[in-house]
Simulated assay, not measured.
Amino acid sequence: MPDLGKYAGDVLMAYGVTLLLLAALIWRSLARSAKMKRLLKEAEERRNHG
């Protein structure tokens, strides 16, 4: 790891915030994808059985 000097805390905090935001976006995308797949499956079942 490079020597960040007096800015180490700020740089590491920026990395941490970035990683948290990326993780939140990935989680949100996966959750929304699962919801849409479920809704599509339910709609297809209603169409085929109704």
Rank of each mutant, 00 (worst) to 15 (best):
I26Q: 02
E44C: 01
L22F: 09
H49E: 13
K6A: 14
S29E: 04
P2Y: 06
L12P: 00
L21Y: 08
A34F: 03
Y15C: 15
G50D: 05
G5Q: 04
A8S: 14
G9W: 08
S33W: 04
L12F: 13
E45P: 02
P2E: 12
G16R: 08
Y15H: 11
M36Q: 14
L40S: 06
M13I: 00
A8G: 05
V17S: 08
A8Q: 14
L25W: 09
E44N: 06
L12A: 05
K35L: 06
D10N: 08
V17C: 03
D10G: 14
L21Q: 10
L25Y: 04
A31Y: 07
P2G: 09
R28W: 11
D10T: 09
K35R: 10
A14E: 13
T18Y: 14
K41N: 06
G9Q: 13
K6L: 14
T18N: 13
N48C: 02
G50M: 09
P2A: 15
R46K: 13
A34Y: 02
L40V: 04
R38E: 14
Y7W: 10
G50A: 10
A8H: 10
R32M: 04
R32D: 08
A8F: 00
R46G: 01
D10H: 05
R46C: 01
L40H: 07
K41V: 01
M36W: 04
L25C: 14
I26S: 02
